[in-house]
């Protein structure tokens, strides 16, 4: 199964909020994938086993897997574009 990870360094659990929104969107589109919220500090160890990274915190680092804008899923601004990209990456 494909794996999507969401990371933030925030204390209000932004990544969990985005992860649950993304999981809901995938379910609605009947796409099976694991969506996980991870701590930004342990991101490096998750990246190699993941297919898509949804970023919330501004990173100083680029990763070699497809990266999407997590804020779009939080605010709804530009969400359609990110959703379409996500779906095409997972199917």
């Amino acid at each position: 199964m494909k794996r999507v990870i969401v990371a933030c360094g925030s204390g209000v659990a932004t990544s969990q909020t985005v992860a649950s929104k993304v999981q809901k969107i995938l379910n609605q589109n009947r796409i099976k994938a694991n969506v996980e919220a991870v701590d930004i500090k342990s991101l490096d160890q998750y990246i190699p086993q993941s297919d898509v990274y949804i970023a919330i915190t501004k990173g100083s680092k680029d990763y070699n897997i497809p990266t999407l804008n997590g804020i779009a899923f939080l605010t709804g601004m530009g969400m359609e574009e990110e959703t379409n990209q996500l779906i095409s990456l997972l199917t």
Binding site: G11, V12, A13, T14, Q16, T17, S20, L74, T75
Partner: peptide, 17 residues
């Protein structure tokens, strides 16, 4: 946001959004 319980944070953020 001043929250003392981490488990309510997700729901709070969803509510606010």
């Amino acid at each position: 946001l001043g929250i003392t319980e981490s488990k309510t944070q997700v729901e709070l953020l969803q509510y606010l959004m």
